[in-house]
Design a protein around this nucleic acid. Structure first.
Length: 572
DNA sequence: GCCGTTTTCGGCCCGACTGTTTTCAGTCG
């Protein structure tokens, strides 16, 4: 699957064109095309074979030819030519804060600089000084930018960012003068990893709010402080920005700071065509300059004559077109979830008994819950022997007799062996209410082998769900590659659901997979994989992934009541 | 380089901040 490779090349071409000083709109066309390619789950080779490349938004005659060239030859000659003209290593320089395409080109042309090391040397020995527009300050800024870059501040997982953001917004809410408050940016869009946390506040006392913010106990270092924007590092070393606006600007500012940038550009283009101008301060009449609205985010979409677009969809990946046609999905909500179907108990590596889990699920408002411990061979995670599994079934029946208002399903997360067979025999699996099949070892197999392995498991009539599809751990381990379309086709054919695993490091299958599943008609379940009761709360993360994947209540099986759910999975 | 219920050619978001500048270019989000 070459989609991401081609997206990366298009982004590199955009960077190189910027250094060359080419037409900015052409550059934007490459970036938009790259963004769209990143969001496509279907293999570009398949789309190309169908002759549908130009159906992809942002892909026209030229770019479709370039994609085809790459698919056939493994390179894009235009890109190769560009690299001859401008050294590829200059792309590294523009990763430095404060160094853009113009300065990168200047440093290269005037001093022959091609690497960050060289740039640092020249800045330290004041050899940049004297170039047009460069003096001491710029040299200092560049050195600071390089230091920051080398520090390598990592992105946070969504779960981690949400926890920090909640802690900070809870503290800020208590400060006099804080009226409305929301987290914005990629966090509000629920991207799977977050670079920095943006918090927006409305207040008529901006000075007081800023003062209080930079003195919060969570703040380790203040990077900048003004009346409208302050930046800090948390004790853990993560970057948080606070912006304060007036109440009547709040909606416009929230939309602006939520992004994505690509979404905002499209929205502002639409506004211009309707005679409006949208900025972070409000919505204005183009001619008179009068302010029309801005207090509520909804105003923007209403004035454009389209439905409100939920933040999770704002990526310019078709949501605006859908809104124009009135086709926006009615996204699944946390309240729609009636069960958590992937929980570990003390029988394997979880912390609680069957009864404790059942009671915890009731507190969550669930109507049923599935306890799915590891299978016999997974020794490191307390895999359950067949004898113990029989005892677990009996204990589950006992808890079901004792507790009213919740149904406990006895299940397993059975290990899928390298050949696709399962870690319990069929007659054992047939005794269980629910079976999740997951891969826990032997990750280094080809895309074809892993796809075959998973499909083999799906064809087992006792398997209801495939757990954490790619095995990835965010920031730790790349998942193995699979042929998603093949798996989804077999999923539809066999009635095997795919899991969105909401464990913060997993979020697997991801948003793009969800969207493709919906397109092909495959069913999804959202589970937390909780090992401790408080991890039930991870459900929010799973729902966020599903929402980014355009899923609705009807696409997700654990929104059904228990009888309907069991009926669906027993059809296999 | 893309795109089209005002267009197949002429458009293509908006503003803040910084450092270097006597009015603005570059960078960022």
């Amino acid at each position: 699957m070459k989609n991401l490779e081609i997206a990366r090349i298009f982004n590199n071409i955009a960077d190189l064109l910027e250094i060359r000083g080419d037409n900015p709109f052409k550059i934007r066309a490459y970036r938009r095309a790259a963004l769209n390619l990143e969001g496509i789950a279907e293999d570009l080779a398949t789309i190309s074979a169908r002759g549908d490349l130009k159906e992809i938004p942002g892909i026209g005659k030229d770019l479709s030819l370039k994609i085809e060239e790459y698919l056939h030859t493994g390179y894009i000659s235009y890109y190769e030519e560009l690299k001859k003209e401008i050294p590829e290593s200059l792309l590294g320089l523009i990763a430095i804060q404060g160094v853009g395409p113009k300065k990168a080109k200047l440093f290269h042309d005037a001093l022959g600089i091609t690497s960050i090391d060289e740039l640092q040397e020249m800045a330290q020995s004041h050899q940049l000084h004297g170039l047009p527009g460069i003096k001491e300050k710029t040299e200092e800024n560049i050195l600071r930018g390089i230091a920051f870059y080398r520090q390598g501040i990592e992105r946070m997982t969504l779960g981690y960012a949400m926890a920090i953001s909640k802690r900070l917004t809870d503290q800020l809410r208590g400060i006099p003068g804080v009226e409305q408050i929301d987290s914005a940016g990629s966090l509000r869009r629920r991207m799977e990893t977050i670079g920095d946390i943006d918090i927006l506040v409305s207040s008529s006392l901006p000075h007081e709010v800023m003062d209080a913010f930079v003195h919060l106990p969570d703040v380790r270092q203040v990077l900048g402080k003004g009346t409208t924007k302050s930046s800090v590092l948390t004790q853990e070393g993560y970057h948080v920005d606070l912006r304060v606006v007036q109440q009547d600007q709040y909606g416009a500012a929230l939309a602006y700071f939520t992004g994505s940038k690509a979404h905002n550009i499209r929205i502002r283009e639409m506004a211009v065509k309707k005679g409006f101008k949208i900025s972070e301060y409000g919505i204005f009449d183009e001619k008179s300059g009068d302010r029309i609205a801005g207090e509520k985010e909804e105003d923007i979409y209403r004035l454009l004559g389209i439905h409100f677009i939920p933040p999770e969809l704002r990526e310019d990946r078709g949501e605006i077109e859908a809104a124009l046609k009135g086709n926006l999905p009615n996204l699944i909500q946390r309240e729609d979830i009636k069960a958590d179907l992937h929980i570990h108990s003390r029988y394997s590596d979880g912390a609680h008994s069957i009864r404790e889990i059942a009671e915890g699920a009731m507190k969550m408002g669930y109507k049923y819950v599935a306890i799915t411990d590891h299978s016999q061979s997974l020794g490191v995670a307390g895999g359950v022997s067949i004898d113990t599994l029989i005892a677990k079934i009996e204990e589950t029946e006992k808890v079901n007799r004792e507790l009213l208002g919740i149904r406990v399903l006895c299940g397993t997360e059975v290990d899928v062996r390298p050949d696709g067979t399962l870690d319990y025999p069929e007659d054992v699996l047939s005794k269980l209410d629910i079976v999740i099949a997951s891969i826990h070892s032997v990750f280094k197999r080809s895309r074809e082998e892993q796809t075959e392995r998973i499909i083999h498991a799906m064809r087992n009539p006792h398997v209801h769900i495939i757990g954490h599809l790619t095995g990835r751990l965010l920031k730790e381990r790349e998942g193995y590659e699979v042929n998603l379309d093949e798996i989804l086709k077999v999923s539809v054919e066999t009635g095997t659901a795919l899991e969105v695993n909401a464990y913060p490091q997993r979020l697997d299958m991801n948003d793009i997979g969800c969207r493709r599943a919906k397109e092909l008609g495959a069913k999804v379940v959202i589970n937390t994989d909780a090992h401790v009761l408080h991890q039930f709360d991870y459900m929010d993360l799973g729902v966020a992934v599903a929402r980014r994947g355009w899923l609705e209540k009807r696409d997700v099986l654990n929104t059904l009541d228990v009888e309907s759910f069991l009926k669906v999975i027993r059809k296999k």
